[in-house]
Design a protein around this nucleic acid. Structure first.
Length: 1090
RNA sequence: GGGCCUGUAGCUCAGCUGGUUAGAGCGUCCGCCUGAUAAGCGGGAGGUCCGUGGUUCAAAUCCACGCAGGCCCA
């Protein structure tokens, strides 16, 4: 890498590390690769406690986007951290390779579309293409994952299409089957007759699927089976799909709605009839001339029998219900989904709707299919011949009903109807055979398992996922597709017996022999038949493949080819997961499939520890663009991760993603935020190291130097830094253990930017460049070195590249930061009092700075003192300490305390604020009045309370005893000049200057000007100079002579003269300083080592 | 239609086991530094905490109902 020319300890950090991060990070990657760092770090943890991480396999069906950077960063940061805590983390990569999206991609590539065309192309070659297609994306995913330092074992990934993986899935499916939890049913899916395939919800979500079309809108008479009087009596039902009428099996009404029985005129010849319709729609449906005879709730109509419009006869399509009730056909049923927005409030039920089908299943109502799998009539119905496409039956059926007097009203209506996104054919909903896992049988167990899981954030687990589990329905695991794990279920042609096959060996045994080239995918597997043990007929495999969520949910076991080979011990160790981390969209996806499979298997097999499937589940939200809009190809607002990385590097993306807000909320991706992270945090951390390294090299600092004073013997400021560094590590450990990555980032940023850089380094710079290498300098070096080391350690899980580069420089021994240990803070260096002391200093300094700013007194001008009043004796004591005092004086450039006392009634008066937290509970309704009394408490009383005494007050006639914890002392300011207060301290500056102060101010001014000149002249840092200074005016001249030593030292002047004449061949300049006085300077480089 | 989430400074977000000066970063204005320098630092201004009711001595925080947005499901 670029920095390798200067190797060894404290080498300069390459410029590129912060300026050209892409290049610098690639160099780190190269080094990791060369030295096999990933492997050697893992090897070093071979004996460590196990932290079980499961990689949710990305679907290898599309390019990774910027949101994947976020998800993968979270996973990587967790694993890196755990590794740095000494744990052994198996990080096996995985790829989800089956499924519809892959098929669609291949169809597109081949220029074919739909089932018939795939079959014409050949299922074997088609699946081969699928298998290859997956690789295109696998490569890109691997490259991006590697680039962002998502450390995984990509050499030995689990791949869901691998024969071993598929075999494990078979085993699990067979376990489900053998436990009696698998059954065959029907599932209503949107179906395209032309393509011969059901459409997934994803496909239904495609743009253009729902189109406005004009359809018949017909209202029909369903004659009551028992006609009461002379007039014909009917239930009116409305539909826009007359073709479904032959398959009508029930009429649904809403139990709570009111229905009217009305007499309406019948045609023009004067007769009348009686019809039922929901009250709310009566006027619309019946017009004005109707006579209301009675009203009933829908619930009262339940069970009313009516005459079917058509009689189709057998065979019946039986719903997967425990008891089928043939008597239930053609009756009124109750359904909550009935609305009164359109129609008659009486809804025609046919098996071409999901609601309808669910109802039929629930009530055990058999139905008859008019239209079959190809979108054509499978039997003649009235005027409609067998083979008629369903849409073409609307007109003749309507005409037939009209002829028979069953058509009440007819119109055309425009409504939104789904069409096939491939071929634009209108879809129809159709019950297709499907295989289910009876998850409802162990729903409660899933709920219990889920309760034991710690969700980050909790509301996803309790709310979103918890509710979903409460409403669990059986899992439809079959997909009528080509590229997937074939369902290992064989069904007998003769007696319909089922058999599940749990391994290839079993299959071979049962089938006798397997076809050549058998690979447990379609199509060859479909050629394998088994003799039925029961009846001797042939058993054939069901044609379906498994839902690919089942594949990924089986990953804890299938990734090791469980239970085959020597996988058992591994799975025993790697189950349950310590943590998984995925996007919110996985709630109903992977989070569910893991749980549904795990909650079953864990109670079944002794390899698995029952109780839960994953201990922690860390959820991240969507990544939006910088304006909060979801990224989509259509809007062109997708952020290409490669471009973002090229510009900012992966670390900056990683850090920004985690630091910018709670990860589970939708996140805006704002490039400016990335820039800010680079500048503020990365820049500061890198510069802090550069500062350290520059002087460490000059002085040849060696952290092993025996002369370095032990921590306990170093100055307060050093011990403060070490204390803060150790506190930081404790904070990071606490946050990371709770999977609070954002909190981690913030803690590290605060330490590095505010404490290490802007306080410690700024306040201690001089110690690094002044004088000889004595104990104090060594202590400064050692302290800064250790603080940097801590900062880099805790940065490493989240910004692995920068941390690695810094570590390389800090350690200089070729070791990787990712192999280091983050040691839990022992507290040995944490000095609470010192930290408190510094906190007080910071408060006073901030107030002092504000005062200086307002007074226009720049820091360079020394002031005689600062007045401080405290209302807490502890604060006073802290400030009086030599360390704190010195810090305040130096930082504010004041000579001392003008005064430092407790409140003396002069600048301010001691007051009390009620401590609501304790008092509120005790006083309740009296609190408000008590607040007033407390605020008016005289200073003596407050002082007594502060010093531990008690005070009695009267509140609304009642005596209340106040103790020390009941009030917080504060100050009320009444000073005649400018003061600053935060309620705890009151500060004021003594702004009066005497001659000496002015002189010193001028001298400092001179130093500043000369150093500016040095800089402009391009002199090296350590270059000594000959300096000549002379002033015009009494003040400046005095200042120069009085502070010659200071000026000389600060400007590295080997020689300082004051003659009013420039040195030969020198740089010179003049400035106006102070009250219109002129300062002139002239300087020349001194001979080296003069 | 249901579930969940979000609404706090111009922007991005903290705070939310109820407790009295509501915070940070960015931006903006003013200033500083110049031995970390194609950086850095300080100070100031800026807020009906979405709205309306309620509970409470006390509400940004809890509850209810709205409004707006998002995600998931129907």
């Amino acid at each position: 890498m670029s920095g390798s020319s200067t190797t060894g300890r404290f080498a300069p950090l390459a410029e590129g590390a912060t300026r050209a991060p892409d290049e610098a990070e690639r160099a780190v990657l190269e080094r990791w690769r060369e030295r096999e760092v990933f492997r050697s770090v893992a090897a070093a943890r071979a004996e460590g406690e196990v932290f079980v991480f499961w990689e949710g396999p990305p679907t290898a069906n599309g390019r990774p986007g910027i949101h994947h950077v976020m998800a993968r960063t979270i996973k990587d940061a967790i694993c890196r951290y755990q590794t740095m805590r000494g744990r052994r983390v198996e990080r096996k990569a995985g790829w989800d390779t089956h499924g519809l999206p892959v098929e669609l991609e291949v169809e597109k590539a081949l220029g074919i579309s739909g089932r018939p065309e795939i079959e014409a192309y050949g299922v074997g070659p088609f699946n081969e293409r699928c298998r290859e297609s997956v690789w295109t994306y696998r490569r890109e995913w691997e490259q991006l994952s590697e680039r962002i330092a998502y450390w995984l074992d990509y050499d030995d990934p689990y791949v869901t299409y691998d024969a071993d993986y598929v075999e494990s899935v078979w085993h699990i499916l067979a376990r489900f089957h053998d436990a009696g939890l698998v059954y065959r049913g029907q599932r209503v899916v949107p179906y395209c007759g032309r393509c011969g395939t059901g459409l997934s919800s994803h496909e239904i979500g495609q743009p253009g699927v729902y189109q406005d079309v004009e359809d018949p809108s017909v209202t029909l008479r369903f004659r009551l089976a028992e006609q009461a009087g002379g007039e014909p009596e009917s239930l009116l039902a409305w539909t826009t799909t007359p073709w479904t009428l032959p398959s009508n099996f029930a009429l649904a009404v809403h139990p709570a709605h009111e229905y009217v029985r009305a007499r309406v005129p019948l045609g023009e010849d004067g007769g009348s009839e009686i019809v039922w319709v929901v009250a709310e729609r009566a006027a619309t449906v019946l017009g004005e001339s109707f006579e209301e005879l009675e009203r009933r709730r829908g619930s009262e109509l339940a069970g009313t029998a009516y005459e079917p419009l058509f009689e189709l006869g057998e065979p019946f399509l039986l719903p997967p219900s425990e008891s089928v009730d043939h008597q239930a056909r053609h009756r009124v049923v109750l359904a909550d989904y009935v609305t009164t927005e359109d129609g008659t409030g009486i809804v025609h039920q046919a098996p071409y709707g999901a609601d309808d089908w669910a109802l039929a299943t629930r009530l055990g109502i058999p139905t008859v299919l008019g239209v079959g799998p190809h979108g054509r009539f499978v039997r003649p119905v009235g005027p409609v011949e067998e083979g008629t496409p369903f849409k073409e039956a609307d007109a003749p059926l309507t005409a037939d009903l009209e002829r028979r007097g069953l058509l009440f009203a007819s119109a055309r209506a425009t409504h939104s109807y789904p069409h096939c996104w491939r071929c634009d054919t209108p879809l129809y909903y159709f019950p297709t055979p499907a295989w289910y896992v009876r998850t409802t049988a162990y729903k409660q167990r899933m709920i219990d398992y889920n309760r034991r899981c710690n969700w980050v954030p909790p509301q996803v687990g309790e709310g979103r996922f918890g509710d979903w589990l409460e409403n669990n329905i059986d899992w439809n695991i079959s997909r009528d597709r080509f590229w997937g794990t074939p369902l290992p279920f064989w069904v007998c042609e003769g007696c319909d017996a089922e058999r599940a096959v749990g391994s290839v060996a079993d299959l071979e045994r049962l089938a006798g022999t397997l076809p050549e080239g058998f690979d447990n995918h379609k199509p060859l597997i479909d050629e394998v038949t088994i003799g039925c043990e029961a009846c001797g007929a042939t058993m054939r495999r069901t044609h379906a493949v498994v839902d690919c969520w089942f594949d990924s949910g089986a990953m804890p076991y299938a990734q090791y080819h469980w239970p085959f080979g020597d996988s058992r011990a591994l799975v025993r160790e790697q189950f349950p997961a310590s943590a998984i981390a995925e996007g919110l969209d996985q709630t109903r996806g992977w989070f569910y499939s893991l749980l549904a499979i795990g909650a079953f298997l864990a109670e079944e097999d002794e390899d698995l520890e029952p109780g839960l499937v994953y201990r922690n589940c860390i959820v991240n939200g969507l990544v939006l663009d910088k304006d909060g809009v979801k990224m989509s190809k259509r809007l062109g607002n997708i952020v290409d991760p490669w471009e973002a990385i090229a510009e900012h590097g992966a670390d900056a993306l990683r850090w920004t993603m985690l630091a910018a807000g709670s990860p589970w909320l939708p996140r805006r991706f704002d490039p400016d935020a990335v820039l800010e992270v680079r500048r503020r945090f990365f820049g500061t951390l890198a510069n802090s190291y550069r500062f350290f390294a520059e002087y460490a090299r000059i002085d040849g600092f060696d952290p092993e130097d025996v002369r370095i004073p032990p921590a306990a013997e170093r100055s307060e400021i050093d011990r403060w830094l070490l204390s803060r560094a150790q506190t930081l590590i404790a904070t990071v450990v606490e946050c990371m253990d709770a999977f609070d990555l954002t909190g981690t980032c913030r803690a590290v940023e605060t330490f590095v930017v505010d404490e290490l850089s802007n306080w410690y380094i700024r306040r201690n710079r001089r110690r690094f460049w002044k004088g000889e290498t004595g104990a104090d300098k060594l202590a400064a070096f050692a302290s800064l070195h250790e603080a940097l080391r801590s900062a880099v350690l805790v940065t490493a899980p989240i910004a692995p590249f920068l941390a690695e580069q810094l570590w390389a420089c800090l350690a200089g021994d070729g070791s990787s930061v990712h192999g280091e240990l983050i040691e839990s803070a022992g507290g040995s260096r944490v000095d609470v009092e010192l930290e408190a002391s510094m906190a007080v200093v910071v408060r006073v300094v901030e107030m002092g700075r504000a005062l200086r700013e307002r007074a226009g007194a720049r820091t360079r001008q020394p002031l005689r003192g600062i007045h401080v009043r405290c209302c807490d004796p502890d604060d006073l004591e802290l400030l009086r300490g030599a360390f704190a005092s010195a810090q305040v004086f130096d930082e504010l450039n004041v000579k001392g305390w003008a005064s430092l006392e407790m409140d003396d009634g002069e600048l301010c008066t001691l007051r009390a604020k009620p401590e609501f937290r304790t008092l509120g509970k005790r006083l309740g309704p009296l609190m408000k009045a008590a607040g007033g009394v407390i605020a008016a408490l005289p200073a003596e009383d407050v002082a007594r309370l502060r010093d531990g005494g008690e005070v009695e007050i009267e509140v609304e006639g009642r005596l209340v005893t106040l103790g020390p914890g009941d009030v917080r002392p504060t100050v009320e300011v009444h000073a005649p000049f400018d003061v600053e207060t935060d309620g705890r301290f009151v500060c004021a500056l003594d702004l009066e200057l005497d001659e000496d102060l002015v002189a010193e101010g001028l001298a400092r001014e001179a130093v500043s000007r000369v150093n500016g000149l040095r800089r402009e002249s391009g002199l090296a840092l350590e270059q000594r100079i000959h300096l000549r200074l002379w002033g015009e005016g009494e003040g400046i001249s005095k200042a120069l002579s009085a502070h010659a030593e200071l000026i000389g030292a600060e400007t590295l002047a080997a020689e300082l003269s004051t003659a009013a004449e420039a040195l030969d061949g020198t740089v010179w300049a003049e400035w106006t300083v102070g009250e219109g006085e002129v300062l002139r300077a002239s300087l020349v480089a001194a001979e080296p080592r003069s």
